[in-house]
């Protein structure tokens, strides 16, 4: 039954892209990338109870690593993309070492401070990063250049990455991570080295965020310092929050909703988009702490128990 559902989902994803108008193929590709970024972020927030306000740093490290290697060092695209998550993970290891020493608000603030540093370095180090102008013409090779081909490519890479993340959440590592979220003190007393475990989770999250950044670089054809900016850091937060942080697929659902709304609202009324986004965040926080998926789950649970 479960297998059947998965097969149907995969079949739809395989059949759908050629049937869609090409601009929706592009939207679909972007949804997949954002979903990966938000799911990687949610490994920390939903499962580890650690909220980073600076995850754009790892997204940007991935994107810039891929772009720089391909543009400045003339690496083939696939190698550049493969290097992206490792560059981001290295950054996450270095920054995370300090960040996981703090908790809650201070954790969020230090992660933000480091992201600002990454942003500034990217912005100022013109020779390497192109500064404000970014790096242009970071396109995939010919066989991946069509939107349809890149969409399939992204779906496969993101699919595999999501499988890995799903396995991590359900693994012994994921169980211990949830235990830390619930009660760090108790976790210490059953033998978990809390900081080390949190750092490992931080690096894993950075790794997959960097992969999302790498995919985005070739999707976008260029990279800009904005990738490391505050707004980018809040994207996975908003997406995960809208979708629901308690469930693994919440951020995926959030990404679908977020990008569809962005496509229509932001295109029609670009001015109102941040207003809408901000109002949605405020509304979710005040009225729907479980996010929209949580709301649906609660409904389903209620109807089931009512019967």
């Amino acid at each position: 039954m479960r297998v059947a559902r998965w097969l149907v989902a995969i079949a739809i994803l395989l059949i759908l892209p050629p049937l869609l108008p090409s601009f929706l193929v592009v939207v679909m590709t972007e949804i997949a990338i954002v979903a990966l970024f938000a799911t990687a972020f949610n490994l920390l927030m939903g499962f580890g109870g650690m909220v980073s306000f600076g995850h754009a740093a790892y997204f940007a490290l991935g994107a810039y690593a891929a772009a720089i290697l391909v543009k400045q060092a003339a690496w083939p695209m696939l190698l550049g993309l493969a290097a992206a998550p490792f560059a981001a993970a290295a950054g996450a290891l270095f920054f995370g070492f300090f960040i996981v020493r703090l908790t809650h608000t201070y954790f969020a603030m230090l992660s933000l401070a480091f992201a600002q540093i990454v942003f500034t370095v990217v912005f100022k180090w013109k020779a390497l990063t192109g500064g404000d102008d970014g790096l242009l013409n970071v396109w995939p090779p010919a066989w991946l250049k069509s939107p349809l081909a890149y969409c399939y490519f992204t779906l496969v890479v993101v699919g595999l990455a999501m499988l890995a993340l799903h396995a991590i959440v359900d693994s012994p590592f994921g169980y211990a991570l949830r235990a830390i979220r619930e009660n760090p003190r108790r976790a210490r007393f059953i033998g978990v080295n809390v900081r080390r475990h949190q750092l490992q989770a931080f690096v894993l999250s950075g790794f997959f965020s960097g992969l999302a950044g790498g995919l985005f670089a070739f999707f976008n054809g260029s990279v800009f310092p904005d990738f490391a900016y505050l707004n980018k850091s809040f994207e996975p937060l908003v997406v995960a929050l809208l979708g629901g942080v308690q469930s693994f697929f919440g951020p995926l659902a959030g990404a679908v909703g977020f990008k569809i709304l962005e496509t229509y609202i932001a295109r029609q009324w670009p001015i109102y988009w941040p207003l809408f986004l901000g109002a949605a965040v405020v509304f979710v926080v005040v009225a729907l702490p479980q996010g929209f998926v949580g709301l649906l789950q609660r409904r389903a649970w209620r109807t089931r128990t009512a019967r």
């Binding site: 809650h104 608000t105 941040p274 901000g278 926080v285």
Partner: peptide, 22 residues
């Protein structure tokens, strides 16, 4: 949780920013 409060005030940045623009 404190983090929800942070997130809420972040949402306000966007709302106020747009209202000022309007």
């Amino acid at each position: 949780e404190p983090l929800l409060q942070l997130i809420l005030t972040f949402g306000l940045i966007l709302v106020i920013g747009t209202l000022v623009l309007l």
